[in-house]
Design a protein around this nucleic acid. Structure first.
Lengths: 110, 110
DNA sequence: GATTTACGTAACCTAAAAGTTACGCATTAT
DNA sequence: ATAATGCGTAACTTTTAGGTTACGTAAATC
């Protein structure tokens, strides 16, 4: 795990990390609280957290010796933006389907 | 590259694969046509295509000995759905910000 | 019908991701 | 002051991802 990853998609590639995000979405959690819900060791979780943080999916709220994870919209937006890039393609597809239907499929008349 | 990958996020983890999707979004392309635009070998591209296909991002249109790649919305929708899962979280965040502002921040009066 | 083209696939190698244990270091509790 | 807790990190091992070359095969070209 090269924890310096900054790529949002790379960060989401791991199932465990996606589960972590879903857990944190339900409620703010400390590193240990997260680790308790996984089979992997705490240090492993710790690394995942760092990756998610660097990719902009979570923020850390330090409270004494505990570190709470909360969602950060940055990473999600990045992915959303990329998905939106293809919006144009789908609407074009849709329009050409419309054209096809308009010119080729007989409309039932009353 | 275990080409049996069916995971959408896993498929998007690779930069090259994301580029392939963007290329294909511009226009339908054969495997070789795609490979020409990359530094990697054709067999490598071939594997990437298979991964993208299995993950539901592209469909193959066979035309004689050529195989054309076209986008498939399935994979994109899967990712979109996952992103939408967190929608609830952000709106809750927004509402609590609203509440905070309403109760704590003095409104400038005229 | 021989050759070239457009692929897929198997076998293999390398590098990076993901995991572990074993520490160390603050912070909190006793 | 001492012990216990909540982490991060370094060093190491295993697994997987991504790449290659070397084939084979079916369709197009000559």
């Amino acid at each position: 795990m090269s924890t310096e990853t900054t790529d949002a998609f790379q960060a989401l590639a791991d199932r465990g990390r996606r589960e972590i995000l879903m857990m944190v979405a339900k409620e703010k959690r400390s590193i240990n609280a997260i680790a308790e819900n996984f089979d992997i060791s705490r240090p492993a979780v710790s690394k995942h957290i760092k990756i998610l943080q660097n990719a902009g999916f979570i923020n850390i709220e330090e409270k004494g010796r505990e570190r709470y994870c909360v969602l950060n919209q940055t990473g999600f937006s990045e992915v959303q933006q990329w998905i939106n890039t293809f919006e144009e393609y789908w609407t074009a597809q849709f329009r050409s389907l419309e054209n096809y239907l308009a010119s080729n499929v007989p409309v039932s008349k009353k």
